[in-house]
């Protein structure tokens, strides 16, 4: 397998008054092209910090991250980021929110009509063609998150980064969007790194689940390959022995070997 996204010995230290705080300690992770990888761990384990480093929003104090053999040295449109709180601009319509991203990435080399096509296509992919002209304030939380996904994918990123994308949604909406995401990822063959603290979400969606130990100085505790065939059906999984076993492996890691004292 080709190493598409390559996290090499990444560490993150924050200076504070009480001395140095080590958030991440020598993280090594290789993600292949088209792979879906989930980072899971208790809150405060630095999984979001790692995602932000890949996004380029934070600079690691040690180590390096390569994407398609080029070093990441800042944020850029070769990575599409979906934030937990959707981060849509409330004064723009759904269409304009997506168009802003499309225009930035393709505006220099494509005519306006093509940019509009791309924006429409992205919103259609997430099933929001009918809500294009609505403002974020006029649509539900689930729909906002769909627009966020459309915006991230519209720029044809090398890798899609999802930071607890469904964390703020109710359980039913979350399930629908997980199914949608599986469908979209299958059709676009996107490479995805997702942060979550939902065990079912991690096992259902991923090719590999990266389980992180508790901070400070969080590391990768274990990596679990999810060898369930795709497409995966949510209902069939409930009784699938392999699924239940894999799910238990993650639970075991999180609640026995690395239980967090609340």
């Amino acid at each position: 397998m080709e190493n598409y996204l390559d996290v090499q010995a990444v560490g993150m230290r924050f200076g504070s008054r009480k001395g140095e705080f080590v958030a991440l300690d020598s993280i090594d992770l290789r993600v292949a092209k088209g792979e879906f990888v989930t980072l899971i761990g208790h809150s405060g384990c630095g999984k979001s910090t790692l995602l932000n480093i890949i996004a380029g929003l934070n600079r690691p104090t040690e180590g390096v991250v390569l994407l398609a053999d080029r070093e990441i040295d800042g944020p850029g449109p070769d990575r599409g980021v979906v934030f937990q709180n959707h981060s849509l601009l409330p004064w723009l319509t759904c269409y304009e929110n997506v168009y802003l991203a499309v225009e930035r990435v393709f505006g220099a080399k494509e005519p306006k009509s093509r940019l509009a096509e791309r924006s429409h296509a992205a919103l259609e992919m997430v099933g929001l063609a009918h809500a294009e002209q609505k403002r974020p304030g006029e649509i539900s939380g689930g729909m906002k998150q769909r627009v966020g996904i459309a915006r991230a994918l519209s720029i044809e990123p090398k890798v899609l980064l999802l930071d607890e994308p469904f964390g703020a949604l109710d359980a039913l909406t979350r399930a629908t969007l997980q199914d949608e995401l599986m469908r979209i990822v299958a059709s676009t063959e996107a490479t995805v790194v997702m942060v979550t603290h939902d065990v079912d979400e991690a096992v259902l969606l991923s090719d590999r689940v990266v389980m992180m130990t508790n901070g400070p100085a969080a590391r990768i505790g274990a990596i679990l390959a999810i060898d369930l065939p795709r497409p995966r059906d949510r209902l069939a999984m409930v009784t699938n022995a392999r699924y239940i076993h894999l799910r238990n492996c993650v639970m075991e890691f999180l609640y026995r070997r690395h239980a967090k004292v609340a």
Binding site: P77, R79, S87
Partner: peptide
Amino acid sequence: DYLNVARVLN
């Protein structure tokens, strides 16, 4: 959040 959007999109 809005400034982060600006940053990731450059």
